[in-house]
């Protein structure tokens, strides 16, 4: 019978905490760049101008279709050779997941934008708004609200996907777990605790997202019926 012993894990709690901070840092960075980039890609894809729509469509489809780990390897191992820059694990990770998540966010944005009724475009155009004014003042505010569930889901997916950065030795939570497991010979306890930490953090974000959705659903005055 295996005798569980969590003491070695607790003794390394500071490393795990540092790992969690790093996980949040790479997730946050990817969100900070991925969301605006995703919006830009979505607008380019919807622009109706082939010179914009086509490259945007390709970036979106390519990054949604290829495995994120392959992308990460490309940015970490291949890109530095190609452009001759030092690539730290953090830079490669932030770059990969900013672009990767932007491809997914682009589709969330696009879905939200096209879900807004045509009449909203017409009414704003009929007032004399330019296309960009209509988009900013009338369409996006309505689209963003409808996007929130898909958006939270994507953010959670992103956080889970960032565990891949451990493979290129960025010291995220999973990487630290692996280090501690090798140091203490307690992989069972370490990986169980780390799985638990991810579960709790992600579950908390999910619950928060669900509360937010319900709040928005209740404040019905600004929803379309």
């Amino acid at each position: 019978m295996y005798r569980w012993d969590f003491a070695p894990v607790l003794a390394n709690a500071d490393l795990l905490l540092q790992g969690l901070v790093n996980t949040l840092a790479v997730t946050g960075t990817a969100l900070a760049f991925g969301i605006p980039l995703g919006l830009a890609l979505a607008l380019a894809r919807l622009s109706g101008r082939r010179l914009l729509a086509w490259p945007a469509g390709f970036v979106i489809e390519f990054f949604r279709t290829t495995p994120p780990l392959v992308q990460l390897f490309w940015f970490f191992f291949a890109l530095p050779v190609l452009i001759r820059v030092e690539m730290t694990p953090f830079m490669a990770s932030a770059l990969t997941f900013s672009i990767q998540s932007s491809a997914f966010f682009a589709e969330v944005f696009r879905g939200g934008i096209v879900s807004v009724e045509r009449g909203q475009w017409e009414a704003s155009r009929a007032l004399g708004m330019t296309p960009s004014q209509s988009m900013r003042r009338i369409i996006l505010p309505q689209a963003v609200k409808r996007m929130i569930p898909a958006f939270m889901e994507r953010a959670i997916e992103l956080m889970k996907t960032t565990t891949l950065v451990a493979i290129v030795s960025y010291a995220d939570l999973l990487y630290q777990a692996n280090e501690i497991a090798q140091k203490t010979f307690r992989p069972l306890e370490v990986f169980t605790v780390v799985a638990g930490i991810y579960f709790v953090v992600i579950l908390m974000i999910s619950l928060l997202a669900r509360r937010l959705e319900r709040r928005l659903a209740v404040s019905g005055e600004s929803t379309v019926h």
Binding site: G119, Q120, E122, T130, P131, P141, S222
Partner: peptide, 23 residues
Amino acid sequence: EKELTQLRQRVGMVFQQFNLFPH
């Protein structure tokens, strides 16, 4: 585009489905 936005400022339209901005 610019000419049309200027035209639309001078011509008002009321739609069958109202198309009020719900937000």
